[in-house]
Nucleic acid binder design. Structure first.
Lengths: 204, 204
DNA sequence: GTCTATACTTCGATAGAC
DNA sequence: GTCTATCGAAGTATAGAC
């Protein structure tokens, strides 16, 4: 399921080396951003030769997509579990506040806007992701008796995903003004609907 | 005021060519992201020779900083005007919703996290920017009689800047679910405090 | 499956002529 | 102020030996 048909050999998906390259690429993506994910640097981080990247992935876009897919499936499952938990709003909030996931999401989004090949798949996934959330939240809101005209579930979703992102970005720059207040504000709402934060912070 | 002392010649700040290079760099930054801003591509976009970039800016970091500074000063003034307008919350919201400014901010933020040389200046500016907002908003909230324990002005600032960003990002991916609802939600609040949106949308 | 070797491109940056 | 010329480093990607 790579980008294009090719006469070239491609390494098996089950390969241990391939997994190492994926790990290295993901780490680089997190630590230094998509621009730092080059075949040479990925290989160096994995302690391998640069040509192996092209043996296993042919193009850099294929590598990016492979990293993305590996995380995406896992993510949808985690989110489904969060939405099915006893306190879904809290679970969703904690899920969105995971810095690693948030950073990866932002990096892939930036990448999608620069690489046409990757764009479609990421946009498609993002829609599925959002849809999964929306569907669950409609039920939750009905159950809680929330007036969805006043507070539409889709708007809540956007708030719950945009806030952690900007907090993470600002934190990286050393900014913290208003962060505690914002988190407190959100969590006051969560508490109003679902009581205190679950003791086990949704170990997803 | 460049990064380092150097024996090399540097072109005058008043140069017309220099301004063209700045324009080209800013445009590239907006259209294709920071990774696309290379000396060769900037020069090509301006219809000039690549070496001129290094004549006027010595390093690429100097170029980035020059683009940033040119916009930053202008931005602080615009925001000051917005905050001094008769309906400051509406003005601030409209200001934050400007897609060009938002996109540039995001690009520079990403850049700051990858380039140590640039980082400090951007972080410093962001703090000043936020501080200017916070100071003004405290007065506004007092005037409107808003309970700042319930709704802290700094939290409102984070909401008002994070929401337009995620809407812009999602839009770029073709996602629109919940956008209208979120904007409507915010604007209901703005209307509650300041009445209808000012007819002249804060021509800043 | 991994290696050497290599082709070609683009990058940042500088020296020096005009 | 702008040009030609040029460096060395890093980028993607491929061919073919082992």
């Amino acid at each position: 399921m790579t980008t294009a048909a090719s006469p070239r050999r491609i390494g098996a998906e089950s390969s241990r080396t391939r997994a190492q390259l994926l790990d290295a690429a993901e780490l680089l993506l997190l630590e230094e951003g998509y621009a730092a994910v080059t075949s040479r640097r990925v290989a160096a981080k994995a302690g391998l030769k640069p040509q192996l990247v092209h043996y296993y992935f042919r193009t850099m876009d294929d590598l990016f997509l492979a990293v993305f897919r590996r995380g995406a499936e896992h993510n949808l499952e985690r989110q489904a579990r969060a939405l099915a938990s006893p306190k879904p709003l809290w679970a969703l909030w904690d899920f969105n506040c995971d810095p690693r996931g948030t950073a990866l999401t932002m990096e892939f989004t930036a990448l999608a806007n620069r690489r046409p090949t990757i764009r479609d798949e990421i946009a498609n996934y993002a829609e599925r992701f959002r849809h999964q959330q929306a569907e669950a939240l409609v039920g939750v809101f009905r159950q809680y008796g929330i007036d969805t005209g006043e507070l539409p579930p889709t708007a809540v979703l956007i708030l719950m995903s945009s806030i952690p992102r900007i907090l993470l970005i600002e934190n990286a720059l050393g900014m913290t003004t208003g962060h505690a207040e914002t988190v407190a504000l959100v969590e006051r709402y969560l508490t109003r609907f679902e009581g205190d934060r679950p003791s086990e912070p949704s170990a997803v």
